[in-house]
């Protein structure tokens, strides 16, 4: 007797109001493709890094509005969804070399920061679960380091900016905060500076020319007898 193929469990989803039945367990992105959508907008890395697939949805019987990434969220029965592939948000133009990284810097470029009413809607909208309101507040009072730290995992999907009643473009503010931190506040790597100087002075040129001319046998010999830097305990002291 032929074995019957197990019935695939299906769920109902509503893509912009239209009902489709898709296999349970798919991500929203794969479910939409299953239903016949071929992405032009709304798909990027498909792995949760690029923010292209921002999706807003509600669940049946639940008034709350949810926001998440289509590529990282599993479909649920009764999901009503729409995608937000683009967020209009003005980015300030600046020359990082000309900015003084003081406590006014962020508010100067993004004065709308002062409109923040602490409603926390941005935090609720963030698919990366960042403390968005906290980094906006840190930016408001000029704490660049804190804003950089809290916003680091931001993928710039735009959901926060779309939901904000004060019309702040959070991720642009955070980008400036992080660049200011990386350039002015984090201490410079001295060893890097020294190595760059050595290279620019040509310290390795002669040896490199010799390396490039070595035969494969010679290289193989050198490669197989390399000493490998041991894996020591990394002291967990990091400039967080």
């Amino acid at each position: 007797m032929a074995k019957k193929k197990p019935e695939m469990k299906m769920v109902r989803i509503y893509i912009m109001g239209k009902e489709y039945k898709v296999p349970a367990g798919l991500t929203i992105m794969k479910a939409m493709e299953y239903a016949g959508y071929r992405y032009i907008r709304g798909a990027g890395c498909r792995a949760g890094f690029c923010g292209a697939c921002a999706t807003v949805y509600r669940k049946e019987g639940d008034y709350k509005l949810y926001a998440d990434l289509a590529c990282q969220t599993t479909v649920e029965d009764g999901m009503w969804l729409v995608q937000l592939p683009f967020t209009p948000a003005n980015k300030a133009t600046y020359d990082l070399n000309k900015i003084k990284p003081d406590d006014k810097a962020l508010v100067n470029f993004y004065p709308e920061l002062a409109r923040c009413v602490s409603c926390n809607t941005c935090t609720k909208a963030c698919p990366q679960e960042l403390d968005v309101m906290d980094y906006i507040q840190a930016s408001l009072r000029g704490d660049i380091a804190k804003a950089a730290e809290l916003s680091f995992d931001c993928i710039q999907c735009g959901l926060c900016a779309m939901r904000c009643p004060a019309e702040i473009a959070h991720y642009h503010v955070a980008q400036l905060a992080r660049r200011l931190y990386g350039k002015y506040i984090a201490p410079k790597a001295k060893h890097l500076e020294e190595r760059v100087k050595e290279i620019e002075e040509g310290k390795y040129d002669e040896e490199m020319r010799k390396m490039m001319k070595k035969s494969i046998e010679e290289l193989r010999e050198m490669y197989n007898s390399r000493d490998i830097e041991p894996e020591e305990e990394e002291e967990a002291k990091e400039a967080d």
Partner: peptide
């Protein structure tokens, strides 16, 4: 580093 990329660093910049 000049552009402001936040590489993981130790407190002294290394």
């Amino acid at each position: 580093e000049e552009l402001g990329v936040m590489y993981d660093k130790k407190p002294d910049g290394e």
